[in-house]
Design a binder for these strands. Sequence first.
DNA 1: AATATGTTTAACAAATTTGTCAATACAAAC
DNA 2: GTTTGTATTGACAAATTTGTTAAACATATT
Lengths: 205, 205
Amino acid sequence: MGNDLENQTEELIKQTAKMLFFTKGHINAKTQEIADEAGVNRALIHYYFRSRDILFEQVLQEELDHTKHYMHRIFTSKDPFKEKVSQFLNTLIDRMIDYPYLENFMVAEIMKDPNKIKQFHAFNEGVKLKDIIEADLKEEIVAGRLKPIKIEHFMANLMGMSAYPMIAKPIMQSIFGFDEIAYKKFLIERKRVIYKSIFDEDLPS
Amino acid sequence: MGNDLENQTEELIKQTAKMLFFTKGHINAKTQEIADEAGVNRALIHYYFRSRDILFEQVLQEELDHTKHYMHRIFTSKDPFKEKVSQFLNTLIDRMIDYPYLENFMVAEIMKDPNKIKQFHAFNEGVKLKDIIEADLKEEIVAGRLKPIKIEHFMANLMGMSAYPMIAKPIMQSIFGFDEIAYKKFLIERKRVIYKSIFDEDLPS
DNA sequence: AATATGTTTAACAAATTTGTCAATACAAAC
DNA sequence: GTTTGTATTGACAAATTTGTTAAACATATT
């Protein structure tokens, strides 16, 4: 009765859409392109998702939920703050290697409909992540392990240094002449560089 | 004949398009919306620019040229490196207040047609900016005014910390509860925060 | 005033893209 | 093998968006 292993075709369409949207960055991929890439009839997209918009919403939401969960898991753990940041860098950068354009899309979506922003609160899940990180920050600063900095600047620095090389990947690749291999290596390196820039000490291996 | 003060209507259409594209972030603004916003007949867009694509290319190219020029001017000057960075931060951040989504668009454009990347070399203008900055960096490092860092990481840090808060403006606004005024203040603050993060000393007033 | 030149307009045509539907294929259950 | 429910297909309709054109309008030149 067709619902064996997580409906095959439906899942295939979603994975293909994610690849086109978030990996290749084809923000305006037409239903025909998605269907072709997935090797299915275009009408199936409407059969499973009713409309292109709903498909888009759904795959974006799935990835947002994913982001929410890992951020919450990392920052609510009992690990030391530096360990949290290290894990965050690892997860975020690995993830961006898979979906370089996800960040771009979140922004593009919010631009279309600013009300939609509530869904994007990776920061609202019971206890506010913002408050947790803020408390951590204060503790580090008081203990002298971190120079005084406001939470919003700390996060802007951390996210910016991490996400920008992905968002602007083609630009940086061109400027510095990186091929895919070199760029991936560059991204991995960034984990250590960012850690060092923030804490002024080397990331423990 | 009719070319008095830089053709009024043509200029109006371009300014309106830039506002919709780069300030408001309506990446898919239709010709009708542009015409309505400018208060002109839609056919005039085709009269002056032949097609929506050409209009888009043209306004984007204008802004890219602008970026090219100020970056080249700042980094080829004889000022000390720290002064260059300070000026760069000032110019970039002020500019991003006007055109928050310009960065996003450059990337989106390149995604569509990766060949187009040559136009985006704010870094190729006679002498390569990359080489100039790289030389400056080495000098600073040797003189002990800067911790050792590779050019690509230095630029990723600098651009990321500067550009990200603009690219992800709606997200950060929502997380930290900034209204427009507060966000602008936050952006201005960032000049000092970034300078301090990079050079580990306060930006001279 | 007549003419020429450039600008603007509304109506139309073409192209693109999304969404719907009835017919068909397929697989499991009876 | 027939029934039943779901999956898939191609053809079609609707909607959206871009691009074209001929005529109206304005302004300057002769």
